[in-house]
């Protein structure tokens, strides 16, 4: 099983767990978590006043967060479409950097 694909469908300890499928689900989960954390950080930088005079979100901050998340999703979608249209060959290019 696992992060680096050790084990595999023939591994005795993974029983009837389809490891390819689990692995893809885990990669998807990592991706979603990574994006969520980046939105938390980016929208905090954009919207939250760092004077910290009070512990509640004020009206302006709350509205800003809502718009920031929506905008981030839209921006993410546009970039995804762009990368698919250029063939997403950047992954290959990056890998090539290691001379593998």
């Amino acid at each position: 099983m696992s992060m680096f694909g050790i084990g595999g469908s023939s591994s005795p300890s993974s029983g009837n767990i389809n490891s390819e499928r689990m692995e893809m689900a885990m990669q998807e989960l990592d991706m979603v978590t990574d994006i969520f954390n980046r939105i938390v950080s980016t929208c905090h930088n954009k919207c939250i006043n760092t004077r910290y005079a009070e512990g509640d979100l004020n009206k302006g901050e709350s509205v800003c967060i809502d718009r920031c998340v929506a905008k981030f999703f839209e921006a993410n979608k546009k970039v995804g479409e762009r990368l698919q249209s250029v063939g997403a060959n950047a992954g290959a290019a990056g890998g090539g950097a290691f001379g593998l």
């Binding site: 990592d30 991706m31 980016t42 970039v79 992954g91």
Partner: peptide, 14 residues
């Protein structure tokens, strides 16, 4: 490479 590509992608968007 798949993981690195995904990370590169989300860092690009950020």
């Amino acid at each position: 490479q798949m993981q690195d590509f995904m990370r590169m992608y989300s860092s690009l968007v950020e």
